[in-house]
Simulated scan of single mutants.
Amino acid sequence: MAQTVDYWYNQIITKVNGDEVLSDLDHTSAVADYKLWAYIIAYVAWTIDVLFDFRDANVQDVLATKKPHTEKWYRDLALRFQYGQALIPDTDQYLNVGLDASQIAAQKIITQAAVKENDDGSMRIKVVKLLDGDYAQLSDAEILAFKAYIADTKDAGVRINIDSLPPDALKLVIDIFYDPLVLDGTGARIDGNATTPVNDAIKAYLKALKFNGEFAKTRLSDQLQSVDGVVLVGILSAQSQYGIRPFTEIDERVIPDAGYLRVTDDGFTINYRAYA
């Protein structure tokens, strides 16, 4: 970082004052010739300092454009996508002339993105938008525009697979041992404050999971045991499904292929058993 003119001036004056040959110079006059020359030299030194700073910043910018991009860079790139907006030619930036902050935010439809390098060196990008407060896949038109955006901005030679999928399906079979002073045999609160507190807790757990994060049966069980009136939890079965593949039993944990899990319409099998 460049030093100030005063810094260099004081460095020169300190050297002059400490020099045996120059110690007889007039130190009291603010306009002594050597002080004026000292200021000129200090200004030159400051100018060179600033030029070196500019040069260093330029070199860093060049290095940033030349180094290979990381998975995080591609994730950030995906989140910057604006639906319905053209890029500045030969860049990954939008012109956004005449758009205010709220209009730009409305065009940024991708809420979550996850990037992973595959074993063959290609990359996979998963993206979703937010619809009615929950994750949802992009429409055909939206995914087409996003693929064109990635094709225009990715590194040359990098193979990228792009997915925006419906959620992986989840089926659960659970034993709930409940306190009969708080819950009834259907799982509803006796005081009427909630009719399906266990189901609500399961949905809340799934929605709270980080996109492309790990579902774990133990963590789900912990969350359910925090529900008022639930004494013990037994997860008898937890199965997931993606695409048209069959449901498979989850061995404690799974990362959903779509990046998120949701319980199917018939996915809850909850056996309520009073805890004596």
Rank of each mutant, 00 (worst) to 15 (best):
Y83I: 05
Y83W: 07
Y83L: 10
Y83M: 04
Y83A: 04
G84W: 09
Q85R: 15
Q85G: 04
A86C: 09
L87N: 04
L87K: 06
I88A: 11
I88H: 04
P89Q: 02
P89S: 01
P89F: 02
D92F: 14
Y94I: 00
Y94W: 04
Y94P: 06
L95V: 07
N96G: 05
N96M: 04
V97R: 13
V97Q: 14
G98L: 03
L99V: 02
L99K: 14
A101H: 10
S102A: 13
S102K: 10
A105N: 12
A105E: 15
A106L: 05
Q107A: 10
Q107F: 02
K108V: 04
K108G: 01
I109T: 08
I110E: 00
I110G: 01
I110Q: 00
Q112C: 14
Q112T: 09
A113P: 00
A114N: 11
A114Q: 11
A114P: 04
A114C: 03
A114L: 07
V115H: 01
K116Y: 07
E117P: 12
D120R: 08
G121P: 06
G121Q: 08
G121I: 10
R124E: 14
R124P: 07
R124G: 12
K126Y: 11
V128A: 03
K129W: 01
K129Y: 00
L130C: 05
L131I: 12
L131S: 12
L131T: 15
D132E: 13
D132T: 13
D132L: 06
D134T: 15
D134A: 15
D134S: 14
D134C: 09
Y135T: 04
Y135L: 13
A136Q: 05
A136I: 08
Q137M: 09
Q137T: 09
Q137P: 14
Q137L: 11
Q137D: 10
S139F: 06
S139N: 02
S139D: 11
D140K: 13
D140N: 14
A141C: 07
A141I: 04
E142G: 05
E142Y: 06
L144M: 01
L144Y: 08
L144F: 08
A145E: 08
A145G: 00
F146H: 01
F146N: 00
K147T: 13
A148N: 12
A148G: 07
A148S: 09
A148M: 07
A151M: 08
T153I: 12
K154E: 03
K154P: 09
K154F: 06
D155N: 12
G157L: 10
G157Y: 05
G157V: 11
R159M: 14
R159W: 08
I160A: 06
N161W: 11
I162L: 14
I162T: 06
D163N: 12
D163T: 03
D163V: 00
D163W: 02
S164E: 01
S164R: 03
L165G: 03
L165R: 12
L165K: 14
P166H: 05
P167A: 15
P167G: 06
P167R: 03
